[in-house]
Amino acid sequence: MKNSFLKIVLPALAIMLAVGLSFATETLNSSVTGYYDDPAIPGVQSTTTDCMQQPSGVQCETPEGFPLYATPDLDNIPNNELRKDE
């Protein structure tokens, strides 16, 4: 009984957990924190967005029209823009 638990049930549980987690966190990954600079507010502001850091696509903006970035460094580092497929 103990042997079959170790040899069959435990690996099956491990596989199910891995597959389930990867699909579950795939949905979670679709929402990320985006950073932008509103000149009227001091400092860098953040918001949640479904855009991603990817090489192509349209750069995402806040409803007020401020461009979104992946880190608070904004456009001071290359490839930091959050984009969405067209």
Binding site: L6, K7, L10, P11, L13, A14, I15, L17, A18, V19, L21, S22, F23, T25, E26, N29, M52, Q53, Q54, P55
Partner: peptide, 27 residues
């Protein structure tokens, strides 16, 4: 057995997540 299964969870999870979001992983 526990060590092996924890590693299976880690590697399978990492592999499937990479394949699910392949373009992003490649980038």
């Amino acid at each position: 057995e526990i060590t092996c299964n924890l590693l299976v969870v880690l590697f399978l999870y990492a592999a499937i997540s990479k394949l699910l979001d392949y373009q992003h992983f490649k980038w």
